[in-house]
């Protein structure tokens, strides 16, 4: 693409150059394969992503046996749908009910169940969310437009490098007779972090 007569390419900024530098050094040492990097990014962004988590939730909504497994051994339940990954090895699933609402955070850094939820949104990684999810969960939920009755208990789960949490949102009213693949559209990433509820049928839903 022609531009202002200079026969060069504008270099990226310093951090990008450092990443490029690091990558090329590691490739030369045989420690990294550039094609493998592309596969990793593709996997986390396109194949993994929140759709995997939505499928897990939709299955649990329609199959009581699967739900039982998910709540007792989430790692195995998720592996059953072939979603396994190095950051999601030990998963715990916590169920929202009319009396209990669960919220997931990582106060230490930003541990996140990548294989089922893709890459973490930037608010999840921010210091305000990390601290306020613990000190003022009701206020945080309100900012996401999630109003809960006063008598609903909020449980906050702090992720670690060993344990990752997935929220099983409540199945919304009106979704009783929907098939599993239609249900996945109601399961947003945010509902699986616990900052929102699953979308009501007919409201557009996830993505």
């Amino acid at each position: 693409m022609p531009h202002d007569g200079h026969d060069h390419t504008d270099p990226p900024d310093d951090l990008a150059l450092r990443v490029k530098a690091l990558e090329s050094l590691l490739v030369e040492k045989g420690l990294v394969d550039p094609a493998a990097l592309d596969v990793i990014i593709d996997t986390y962004e396109n194949k993994v992503g929140p759709r995997n988590g939505a499928q897990v939730v939709a299955r649990a909504w329609t199959d009581p046996k699967y739900k039982q497994l998910l709540l007792t051994d989430a790692t195995a339940a998720i592996a059953e749908l072939n979603y396994v990954g190095r950051q999601g090895e030990h998963m715990v699933c916590v169920e929202n009910t009319k009396d209990v609402h669960n919220l997931v955070v990582c106060t230490l850094c930003s541990c996140y169940p990548w294989p089922v939820l893709g890459l973490p949104p930037s608010w999840y990684k921010s210091a305000p969310y990390r601290s306020r999810a613990v000190s003022d969960p009701r206020g945080v939920l309100k900012e996401f437009g999630t109003e809960l009755d006063e008598d609903v208990e909020i449980r906050v789960w702090d992720s670690t490098s060993e344990v990752r949490y997935l929220v099983l949102p409540e199945k919304p009213d009106g979704a009783e007779n929907m098939p599993e693949d239609a249900l996945t559209n109601l399961v947003t990433r945010n509902s699986m972090i616990g900052v929102e509820k699953a979308s009501a049928p007919g409201t557009g839903g996830a993505l």
Binding site: V19, K20, L22, E23, L26, A36, I40, I41, Y44, E45
Partner: peptide
């Protein structure tokens, strides 16, 4: 570059 740095660590 953020994605690239992410992938490097995972790899």
């Amino acid at each position: 570059w953020e994605a690239q740095a992410f992938a490097l660590a995972v790899s």
